[in-house]
Design a protein around this nucleic acid. Structure first.
Length: 480
RNA sequence: GGCGGCAUAGCCAAGUGGUAAGGCGAAGGUCUGCAAAACCUUUACACAUCGGUUCGAAUCCGAUUGCCGCCUCCA
């Protein structure tokens, strides 16, 4: 069975087949770099990280392009408002590109910390100004745009398909509410392709219409089609960008090329905090950096991925804590299996091979079902329970342990990124031989019934961050 | 006002017509010198409410209530 994805364009779950067999082109709306990444970014880029990894795992070659919006856009789509990046630059008293550089690096660092792989490559709006101007010229030439005093607007009325993604009909809606008395636009629905730079607007480029800067939507149309083709497979982004951003992208692109734009539109839902949308403008956002202070990357990932990407994620400290606790069993099981890989007895165990095959199949079915990561996580936990149950009867043969460990490594580690590798020899000194000695000495103490001393060792080690666990097969240790 | 979505156990969360996955928490138990870990058992006979379709619905249709998102920048 091939992967099925919910396509916002058709509002149904469809089987995904790439345009070109074996190859996938995917474009995802990246951040505007004027502030620190927050949990909302994490959910979005985590979603597409897992999607790209899963597509690759199924054997497809994926070109995953993500943009960085670094030219700034107005805080308001009317002619009022201030460019977000320029505003931040003014607040920080630095050049706008220092803002861009700072938050772009922070973005890369935080994504890396969350085990989100780099896309195939990033593209920056500021490095595609020429192409954006060309696109505006082409739209003007085709009669889909008009210029007014250094501003160029897209004529929405000239594109019949406008509204097909978001379901918005071209009526008055709340036009009357919006104060646009001085607008030069022919119709309130029209949107800017190119904006005239007012004095003091530092980020500006020369154009046939005078100095200015591109409109918000045009960069994605230009960069996606430049690197993926006029029609490409998947366009992803946050749900809140469906309208107007994605709707406008479609209008511009299809008006210019006359061909279908993205085939699949994949939108992730929002993150709320205590039931309220988390947003930069609301000031209630949790930055990735803050979260990483309290939780491991794996815990954050398992928390986010245990809600389906199309459902809202409600952040509470309790929920993320519960997710982190549950992860402990997985981590422990994996560490035990890795240990048995080297120490386990020779021989085979068909039951484990069967369990691995069944689990892998179930995991594939879950992922094929519109990226059902909660279902996949449930499968992994069931697998862990089954392995642990088997381990209560004695150690596993090395080969079986290796196979079980590989399954966890592939799905929980490489794909979902929720599996922490056992920390081996942190720091300069390898603790293993030291711990072997301590454990051996303590074993002698226990044999001599010197329990209070044995307990003291265990207590002191716990204070030092090392947990001892006495099992039937001897004592093992791990970092707390 | 327009468009869209969601309502499942104490909490989080799957479920896409055949009589409710998984995680956390809680209770009991096995193992253990004790502890920890692990395992076992229990924890949803009204899946928001009311109707309807069907042999059969958490799952489809309608209405109602509540919540959320978009319609202005936001992942």
């Amino acid at each position: 069975m091939a992967i099925h994805l919910y396509n916002s364009l058709t509002r149904t779950k469809e089987e995904f087949r790439p345009l070109v067999e074996g190859q996938v082109g995917m474009y995802v709306c990246g951040p505007t770099v004027y502030g620190p990444p927050h949990l909302g970014h994490a959910k979005s880029y985590l979603t597409f990280d897992v999607l790209a990894k899963y597509l690759r795992q199924t054997g497809l070659k994926v070109r995953y392009v993500q943009n960085i919006t670094d030219v700034g856009h107005l805080t308001d789509d009317a002619d009022a408002g201030e460019d977000k990046i320029i505003k931040q630059a003014r607040l920080d008293q630095v050049h706008p590109w220092e803002v861009v550089d700072r938050y772009m690096r922070l973005y890369f660092d935080d994504m890396t910390a969350l085990r989100i792989a780099h896309p195939s490559f990033y593209v920056r709006a500021s490095q595609h100004i020429g192409e954006q101007i060309e696109a505006v010229v082409a739209l003007l030439k085709k009669g889909h745009a008009y210029e007014v005093d250094g501003n160029v607007y897209f004529d929405v009325g000239s594109f019949a398909g406008y509204g097909k993604l978001s379901g918005r009909v071209m009526d008055e809606q709340r036009e009357a509410v919006r104060v646009e008395a001085r607008s030069e636009k022919r119709h309130p629905r029209d949107f800017a392709l190119w904006k005239r730079a007012e004095p003091g607007h530092i980020l500006r480029w020369n154009s046939p219409w005078g100095p200015g800067y591109p409109g918000w939507h045009i960069e994605c149309s230009v960069m996606s089609t430049k690197y993926l083709g006029e029609t490409f497979d998947i366009h992803g982004g946050g749900l809140e960008n469906m309208f107007p951003h994605h709707e406008c992208e479609i209008a511009q692109s299809e008006a210019e090329t006359g061909k279908p734009f993205a085939r699949f539109w994949v939108h992730n839902n929002m993150v709320t905090v205590d039931g309220v949308k988390m947003g930069k403008s609301l000031g209630n956002f949790r930055t990735v950096r803050d979260l990483l202070q309290k939780h491991t990357p794996e815990a954050i990932r398992v928390f986010v991925l245990s809600t389906h990407y199309r459902s809202p994620t409600n952040y509470t400290e309790e929920a993320i804590g519960a997710a982190a606790t549950g992860l402990g069993r997985l981590t422990q099981c994996y560490a035990t299996l890795r240990d048995l890989e080297t120490r386990g007895a020779p021989g085979e165990e068909p039951a484990i091979a069967g369990l691995c095959a069944d689990t892998a199949r179930a995991l594939g079915e879950a992922m094929d079902n519109d990226l059902d990561t909660p279902g996949a996580i449930a499968q992994i936990y069931e697998f862990v329970t089954a392995v642990n149950r088997r381990l209560t009867t004695g150690p596993l043969p090395a080969a079986a342990a290796r196979e079980a460990a590989r399954l966890l490594h592939t799905w929980a580690g490489d794909l979902l990124g929720i599996l922490a590798e056992p920390a081996a020899g942190e720091g300069n000194v390898d603790l293993a031989p030291i711990m072997d000695l301590v454990i051996e000495l303590r074993k002698d103490l226990k044999a001599a019934k010197q329990f209070s001393l044995a307990d003291k060792i265990r207590d002191r080690l716990k204070t030092a961050g090392i947990v001892l666990e006495d099992t039937r097969d001897g004592t093992r240790w791990r970092k707390a």
